[in-house]
Amino acid sequence: MSENTNLVLVEDKAGVRYITINRAEAYNSLDKELRLALIEAFRNAQKDSEELGSAVRAVVLRANGKAFCSGQDLKEQLRDTQNRTGMEKVVEEYNPMTELLAGISVPTIAALQGPAAGAGWGLAMACDFRVMSTAASFKGAFTGVGLAADSGLSQTLVDCVGRAKALQLLLLDRKVPAEEAAELGLVEQLVEPTELEATVEELANNFAAGPTAAYKEMKALVKNTAAISEAAAAEAEAQLRLFNTADHSEAVAAFLGKRPPQFKGE
Results as ranks from 00 to 15, higher is better:
Leu221Lys: 12
His248Met: 14
Met87Ser: 10
Phe243Ser: 12
Gln82Val: 15
Ala102Gly: 09
Ser154Thr: 11
Ser49Thr: 10
Pro96Ile: 07
Ala213Cys: 05
Val161Leu: 00
Gln77Asp: 10
Tyr27Ser: 08
Thr108Tyr: 03
Ala234Gln: 12
Arg62Gln: 13
Asn28Ile: 02
Val252Lys: 06
Glu40Asp: 12
Ala63Met: 06
Arg259Ser: 05
Lys13His: 07
Leu171Val: 14
Tyr18Asn: 03
Ala236Trp: 06
Val56Glu: 02
Val176Gly: 01
Glu76Phe: 05
Val158Pro: 13
Val191Arg: 03
Gln168Phe: 07
Glu25Gln: 15
Cys69Val: 02
Thr156Asn: 00
Lys175Gln: 14
Ser229Thr: 10
Gly120Phe: 02
Thr5Gly: 04
Leu147Trp: 02
Asn205Cys: 04
Ile21Val: 13
Asn44Lys: 14
Glu183Thr: 15
Phe142Ile: 13
Thr143Ser: 15
Glu180Leu: 11
Gln189Ala: 10
Glu201Leu: 03
Pro211Trp: 06
Ala14Cys: 06
Ala226Gln: 11
Glu76Leu: 14
Thr81Asp: 11
Lys89Phe: 11
Arg163Asn: 12
Gln262Gly: 15
Val16Phe: 01
Glu217Ser: 15
Ala246Pro: 03
Leu169Glu: 03
Gln239Asp: 09
Arg17Ile: 05
Leu170Gly: 11
Gly162Leu: 01
Gly118Ala: 04
Ala198Ser: 05
Ala136Met: 07
Tyr215Phe: 14
Thr199Met: 01
Ala67Lys: 05
Ala246Asp: 13
Asn64Glu: 14
Leu9Tyr: 07
Ala238Asn: 12
Ala231Trp: 15
Leu100Ser: 08
Phe42Trp: 04
Ala119Cys: 15
Val252Pro: 03
Ser54Ala: 08
Glu3Trp: 08
Ile228His: 06
Tyr94Cys: 07
Asn206Tyr: 13
Ala110Thr: 01
Ala41Val: 07
Pro260Thr: 08
Asp48Cys: 08
Thr212Ala: 05
Leu78Asn: 10
Val158Asp: 05
Pro115Lys: 11
Asn6Phe: 13
Trp121Ile: 08
Asn28Val: 06
Arg62Phe: 07
Leu9Gln: 12
Gly86Thr: 13
Leu78Ile: 04
Thr212Asp: 12
Thr81Leu: 09
Phe243Thr: 14
Val8Met: 08
Glu230Val: 00
Asn22Lys: 03
Lys175Ile: 15
Met1Cys: 12
Ser2Ala: 13
Gly122Ala: 15
Pro96Asn: 14
His248Glu: 07
Ser70Thr: 08
Phe129Asp: 07
Leu52Gln: 01
Glu33Pro: 03
Leu240Ser: 14
Leu38Ala: 11
Leu170Gln: 01
Val176Asp: 00
Lys47Asp: 12
